Computed example of a mutant assay.
Amino acid sequence: MRICFVVDKFPSLSETFVLDQIAGCLERGMEVGVVCNETTFGKEANVDDRRWKSLPGKVVCWWGWLGRYRPLLRKWSGKSWDKLSTAIDLLYARKLHKADVIVAHFGTNGLRVARVIKRGRISAPLVTVFHGNDVGGPMHDNTLARYRTVFQNGVLQMPVNAFFRDALIEVGAPPDEVVVHHMGVRPGEIEYRWRSWKNETLSFISVCRLTEKKGVEYALRALARLPRDDWHYSVIGAGELLEQLKRLAAELGIAGRVDFLGPRPHAEVKQRLRDAHVFVLPSVSAHNGDLEGIPVALMEAMAAGLTVVSTYHSGIPELIEDGKTGFLAPERDVAALAAKLVWVADNPVLCEPIAIAARRKIETDFNADVLNQQFARIATELAGTRAH
């Protein structure tokens, strides 16, 4: 079976969930290809795996040599961009012809493929996976109905959480064609290790892009309220807010207990997670509408035995049940978040059974091996419906 993934950049360190899904298809004997806007081989060493360079269905840029001009042309807006980009998509649509199933990650890519299908250029069934800003941004702008072309010309919408499913149905997606499909992690590759912080310096950690929706600002403000001072906070990741967050830590008087480590190799990230006690990710709805799906970083932390503290945001409550598998506070509520962190700091013994329950949650509901098997079954069934 030939399955084609349509993505923006490939391979991408910030989209390891795509790589894992592709790996799951390869493990099940599928002929996988990728159509993207830009290849990143040689640019992101952490994901420069030989598997991605030698996919049986190859990795190709949708626009070919014209792809180098896409960022420049993308500065256009509105109908002008839509018409031009669709015309070029149609010109190079033959790259999708051989697929038995097309999987578009992010609604924007699903929309591109749906427009090509609408014009009769390809006939493979289209599955669109909705992740975050592709839903949150249009919800914020009241333009989510733009995906009606996807609903009409695709066969299945796979939002990564129930919050997104409800939003898509509200703007016209047929309910029986919208199936929540969580991203996941492979528990077998993540060692569970509980570390008590009783009589130790309490180690907090965040692993994320330093953007507004990750809420690191609120983590800093909440940590500054801790009555104890025997704690340390490591922030792994880069982003446009890095310098602003460094200044905030200094203003709060906690810069000496906070390390901004930048992006780190995956092996080092795994080791730092093993050495930490509490994973903090107080996600928020960004002012431009950007939302989380369900952060994979939270899943990895839960699988590894850390106590997780996050927020009632998007699909995160589908992963974390407050007081049962982790802790949740309302978005942007520094006092409530600080109260959760204080309780965690004061109760290492009571946090251990919560960490055990969190690991079980990952093994049962967010297990990538199980989810990839479900995905492969759905793709195989859809391939059998292709109109030749």
Score class of each variant (00 low, 15 high):
residue 2 R to F: 02
residue 7 V to Y: 03
residue 10 F to H: 04
residue 13 L to R: 14
residue 20 D to T: 03
residue 21 Q to M: 08
residue 27 E to G: 14
residue 28 R to D: 10
residue 28 R to F: 01
residue 41 F to L: 06
residue 45 A to R: 13
residue 47 V to H: 10
residue 49 D to E: 12
residue 50 R to D: 15
residue 55 L to H: 10
residue 56 P to A: 05
residue 59 V to K: 08
residue 59 V to L: 07
residue 61 C to G: 04
residue 65 W to I: 11
residue 65 W to E: 14
residue 67 G to D: 09
residue 70 R to I: 09
residue 88 I to F: 15
residue 90 L to R: 14
residue 93 A to G: 06
residue 98 K to R: 15
residue 102 I to R: 12
residue 107 G to Q: 01
residue 113 V to C: 08
residue 115 R to I: 01
residue 117 I to T: 11
residue 119 R to F: 02
residue 120 G to A: 04
residue 123 S to T: 15
residue 124 A to R: 05
residue 124 A to H: 03
residue 125 P to T: 00
residue 131 H to I: 02
residue 141 D to G: 02
residue 144 L to T: 08
residue 145 A to P: 00
residue 149 T to H: 09
residue 152 Q to D: 15
residue 154 G to F: 02
residue 154 G to P: 03
residue 157 Q to C: 15
residue 158 M to I: 00
residue 161 N to S: 12
residue 163 F to C: 06
residue 166 D to V: 06
residue 169 I to K: 08
residue 172 G to T: 05
residue 177 E to D: 13
residue 180 V to L: 03
residue 181 H to R: 15
residue 185 V to W: 01
residue 186 R to I: 04
residue 189 E to D: 15
residue 189 E to F: 01
residue 190 I to L: 06
residue 194 W to E: 12
residue 196 S to R: 13
residue 198 K to F: 03
residue 204 F to D: 11
residue 206 S to M: 02
residue 207 V to K: 09
residue 207 V to I: 14
residue 209 R to N: 13
residue 210 L to W: 05
residue 212 E to R: 07
residue 214 K to P: 12
residue 222 A to D: 06
residue 224 A to W: 04
residue 236 I to R: 08
residue 240 E to K: 11
residue 242 L to I: 01
residue 244 Q to E: 14
residue 249 A to H: 01
residue 253 G to A: 08
residue 254 I to Q: 10
residue 256 G to S: 08
residue 258 V to Q: 08
residue 259 D to P: 05
residue 259 D to V: 00
residue 259 D to N: 14
residue 260 F to W: 07
residue 262 G to N: 11
residue 263 P to D: 13
residue 265 P to I: 00
residue 266 H to L: 13
residue 267 A to K: 14
residue 282 P to V: 00
residue 282 P to I: 03
residue 284 V to D: 12
residue 287 H to I: 04
residue 290 D to R: 08
residue 295 P to R: 05
residue 297 A to M: 05
residue 300 E to V: 02
residue 302 M to C: 05
residue 302 M to K: 04
residue 312 Y to K: 10
residue 314 S to N: 10
residue 316 I to E: 09
residue 316 I to S: 08
residue 319 L to F: 01
residue 323 G to C: 10
residue 333 D to S: 13
residue 335 A to H: 06
residue 336 A to V: 05
residue 341 L to M: 13
residue 349 V to A: 15
residue 353 P to T: 05
residue 358 A to C: 05
residue 359 R to E: 04
residue 366 F to A: 10
residue 369 D to Q: 07
residue 371 L to T: 02
residue 372 N to M: 00
residue 373 Q to D: 14
residue 377 R to A: 12
residue 379 A to S: 11
residue 381 E to D: 14
residue 383 A to P: 09
residue 387 A to M: 07
